[in-house]
Design a protein around this nucleic acid. Structure first.
Length: 865
RNA sequence: GCGAGCUUGGCGGAAUGGUAGACGCACGAGACUUAAAAUCUCGAGUUCGAAUGAACGUGCGGGUUCGAGUCCCGCAGCUCGCACCA
């Protein structure tokens, strides 16, 4: 320690200085197309919604991505690391309604504020590639993509139900419907049919599912979630003819078609159940007021309280009957049932109570027959009966005509063959995945580029008339979609016939915007949506990082869009994200007293509790949970940067918790991070301050120890960063810092050189995490040298990794009883005799039954008795 | 109900089947200081013991192994996701 007192690092000066230096050097700009011969790495974090301010979750997400980007750059990769804004969405319209700000103004102001924070954090983004989805240069290209997909047959228009708020006269998103009522008006929400746009994601259901197996750098659980969401099943569609349908029935309603995965159990059929929305149910409802009442009840319950009603399976007997195709003598009733989903399969099922628990519950409740057709393994056909539990597993088919004696799996195949031969059914593959409805009746979104013409129908806006730009002059003073209300915007000439026509006033679901932004980043300013050479060169994203909440929708939509863009010739890539990392949340304790929740700023946290800063009163401490405004357990990144600097914030979010797990934000933790930064700075700059010593090439034990520590740390930090465990890297860097501090108090030949090497190495290893501090220290150690961002990653040298001595644990009967020091790879006899001597007291004269020697690891003596 | 994950000191966490608890926080002792802060050094799983040391110890119960936090079987608790998918 110098006489002049502690040296301190002033981040308020250093951080802006290095940010400017990096920008001036264009240190993070990526080539348009990666140069051949050098590896590329596309690092991407999920881009933020510009809500107004960055939160700690963002800091964690982007700090992690920045470590990867900076590390890969140092390893010689050409790195693409862009940033942009998911800038369309409802909050902007809400702000407009509540505060009279234009959504565009609100959004761009928010972007400006958040961009400032990101820049202050020193993330190594290529800012020249910044995009915002709300700008016509982005969403116009999206319109082009949509028209291309329309021409390729990937876009469809069809009727679909929306949540309609009859008081506000507006369409609500699902999350705006709370307990079946509008969040704002409180009105009972109605289902209303509108003609809407759909992307044919189901056309890719097979490939999207199959390719999951190739995504080996994705978390297993995300792949499982997607697989279940896509939901492939194999079964059969079977037509059951209605037995003597009553007179006014249409010809096309003379049968009920069901989807089943268990055609093998057709002989066990007890009833057919149809959804309340099924055309046949509608038909019955017209003639039968009781049926109509039941149907309406089903619809009401359908919206929200399904969780409560889930247990209650209810049905209504229509009085209609169908014949079993395998045995026309056997007839079964047709029920309308609240548990049948109209959107899945055919909206109708056949019930086989003995083989399906839900069917069994239903049959028991309404006294329907329970024919036994599946005999479980080990049961006797004479004595086996069904009680309260159905036989859902495999078994042998009985009472099933031509299927008797077959195993259920073989019976399934045989039943399908017979159905197909008879022409009453066929084997099909069914998917749970539905097409993606992208229409939103909103202003602040990308206009859907179509025109409705009375004579030409639906006409895409021609390429030379794109983009269809959102009008600026809109009013939010009445409910509904301002685009629809606009006096002139929607009135245009038909692009095809020139007659007066009307624009589509719906805009895209904002998930569309985020389904291709990663591709746009590869050529963000191109006139076309992509430049194939750039996209093919950079894609796929090598490491994508974001929250697990996007495990299904965003990631599935992006995977679909990638395939659709490939099919429409925008590039030749099938999967957008080769590597995916889902990071955990940032949590914090919450505090409350009689007056309600308190911000962390308002309390003082001590070992013995939490106290109000103003009154000193005791405050109740709640458990640590996700930071949220409602609990006021938030910490503002802006305030943290001001107080501690960007590097401290970054270091802290990378320390301790492995990134896939939740991390707890604590004051003590940030303080520790800040303290370490200062300590590191003192230790490293002490090396810079000490006079250079000439050296004759000899290396004292102290110097050797430091060199070994240095190179061990290089190896450890490298593998930690490869494994995405920056918390482990942090621990190893703490250790090397301590080793260097220790070496400063030592003396010996070669120590000066060793210390300089250790200090320089520390700078480089720390740089991905605390880049400003690293630059500052490096500039002091090697004035005039290149910046850290321009230097290669240090290389661990073998000669310093080799160990000269190993400590072996010596066990007796598997319990540690001592340790010995030996040269590596010492002969077994030497090791064993040393070891035996070391634990003689524990062996205590007992006979050694077995000697286990694992070279350089452990010795274990198994003793008798 | 189905699926996934997690469970290690007072706390966050570390640990290719081989010395459990690295690193950090909080805590304690000491140095420096008139004092405090800052900084530095040292200590510490629990229990017993003055101590060399011993017993116990990675949610619980079994198993494999010379050796299990790690592998296998069963169970519990917590978290998340999906939830009548025929």
């Amino acid at each position: 320690m110098s006489e002049t007192g502690p040296v301190t690092y002033d981040f308020t000066l250093a951080e802006p200085r290095w940010q400017t230096a990096w920008a001036d050097a264009r240190a993070f700009s990526a080539p348009d197309v990666p140069e051949p011969g050098r590896p590329k790495c596309y690092v991407l974090e999920m881009f933020p919604y510009p809500s107004g301010q960055l939160h700690m979750g963002h800091v964690r997400n982007y700090a992690l991505g920045d470590v990867v980007a900076r590390y890969k750059r140092a390893q010689g990769f050409q790195v693409l690391h862009p940033m942009g804004w998911d800038a369309f969405g409802l909050p902007a319209e809400n702000a407009a309604r509540e505060r009279g700000v234009h959504p565009g103004t609100w959004t761009m102001d928010n972007i400006a504020a958040m961009r400032t924070t990101l820049k202050q954090l020193g993330f190594s983004f290529d800012w020249d590639r910044e995009i915002a989805t709300c700008l016509p240069e982005y969403y116009g290209k999206q319109q082009k993509l949509f028209v291309d997909m329309y021409r390729a047959g990937l876009v469809e228009r069809r009727q679909s139900a929306v949540n309609w708020d009859p008081v506000d006269n507006t369409v609500l998103a699902n999350e705006q419907v709370v307990d079946g009522r509008g969040w704002r008006s409180g009105a009972l929400i109605e289902k209303k049919l509108l003609s809407q746009w759909f992307l044919a994601i189901t056309k890719f259901a097979g490939p999207l599912r199959d390719a999951l197996a190739t995504l080996d750098r994705w978390p297993e659980r995300v792949r499982i979630m997607q697989e279940r969401w896509i939901g492939r099943s194999e079964g059969a569609r079977v037509r059951f003819p209605l037995v003597s349908p009553p007179e006014p029935f249409d010809a096309d309603l003379d049968a009920v078609e069901v989807y089943t995965t268990r055609p093998d159990t057709l002989f066990g059929m007890s009833f057919v159940a149809i959804a309340a929305d099924h055309p046949l149910a509608q038909k019955v409802g017209v003639r039968n007021p009781d049926a109509q009442a039941f149907i309406e009840e089903c619809r009401r319950l359908g919206t929200s309280e399904e969780a409560i009603e889930a247990a209650e399976k209810r049905g209504f007997d229509t009085g209609l009957r169908v014949a079993n195709p395998f045995d026309p003598e056997r007839q079964s009733p047709v029920w309308i049932a609240n548990f049948v989903l109209s959107e899945y399969g055919t909206g109708a099922v056949f019930g086989c109570p003995c083989g399906d628990q839900r069917d069994l519950d239903f049959a028991r409740k309404y006294g329907l027959p329970v024919p036994v057709v599946v005999l479980p393994q080990g049961e006797d056909a004479e004595t086996f009966t069904i009680g309260a539990t159905a036989t859902t597993g495999a078994g042998t088919l009985i009472n099933s005509g031509f299927l008797d004696g077959l195993a259920t799996t073989d019976g399934k195949r045989a039943a399908i063959e017979r159905l197909e031969a008879m022409g009453v059914g066929r084997g099909v593959v069914n998917w749970r995945l539905r097409d993606w409805g992208v229409s939103r009746q909103r202003y602040w979104g990308c206009p859907i580029p179509f025109v409705h013409c009375e004579s030409c129908g639906v006409v895409p806006v021609p390429d030379d008339q794109l983009p269809v730009v959102l009008p600026e002059d809109v009013r939010f003073d009445r409910p509904g979609n301002p685009l629809d209300h606009h006096p002139t915007w929607k009135h245009v000439a038909c692009p095809q016939c020139g007659a007066a026509a009307v624009r589509e006033t719906d805009t895209f679901d904002t998930f569309v915007d985020s389904s291709w932004y990663f591709a746009r980043f590869t050529a963000p300013h191109a006139d076309a949506p992509t430049v194939p050479a750039a996209a093919n060169g950079w894609l796929p994203v090598d490491q994508y990082i974001g929250g697990v909440e996007h495990a299904i929708l965003h990631l599935l939509y992006a995977r679909f869009f990638t395939r659709a863009m490939a099919e429409t010739g925008h590039f030749a890539v099938e999967e957008p994200f080769a590597g995916l990392f889902t990071q955990g949340m940032v949590t914090h304790e919450s505090y409350r007293d009689q007056s309600g929740w308190l911000y962390p700023d308002e309390i003082e946290r001590r070992a013995d509790g939490a106290f109000r800063r103003d009154t000193g009163a005791v405050v109740e401490i709640g458990r640590s949970e996700k930071m949220s405004k409602s609990r006021r357990n938030t910490v503002s990144p802006v305030a943290i940067i001001e107080r501690f600097g960007a590097d401290t914030a970054r270091w802290f979010v990378l320390s301790d918790s492995p990134p896939e797990r939740d991390m707890e934000w604590t004051e003590a933790g940030v303080a520790a991070a800040a303290r370490f930064g200062q300590r590191l700075y003192r230790v490293v700059t002490a090396v810079a301050a000490s006079p250079s010593v000439s050296d004759d090439g000899t290396i004292s034990p102290a110097a050797e120890a430091l060199l070994r520590a240095t190179h061990r740390t290089i190896a450890a930090v490298t593998s930690a960063l490869d494994d995405m465990t920056p918390n482990v890297a942090v621990a190893r860097l703490h250790e090397l810092t301590s080793s260097l501090a220790e070496a400063e108090r030592a003396e010996g030949a070669g120590l000066d050189a060793a210390r300089r090497e250790a200090a320089r190495t520390l700078c480089l290893l720390v740089a991905p995490m605390m880049p400003h501090l690293a630059e500052d220290m490096l500039a002091l150690i090697e004035p005039g040298g290149p910046m850290a961002v321009a230097r290669p990653w240090p290389k661990a040298e073998e000669k310093w990794l080799a160990v000269t001595q190993v400590t072996l644990g010596v066990q007796v009967g598997g319990k540690l009883r001592g340790t010995i020091e030996v040269a590596p790879d010492s002969p077994a006899e030497t090791v064993l005799s040393l070891a035996e001597a070391a634990v003689a007291h524990a062996i205590d004269g007992r006979r050694i039954v077995k000697r286990v020697h694992v070279p350089n690891r452990i010795v274990n003596f198994v003793v008798a008795g």
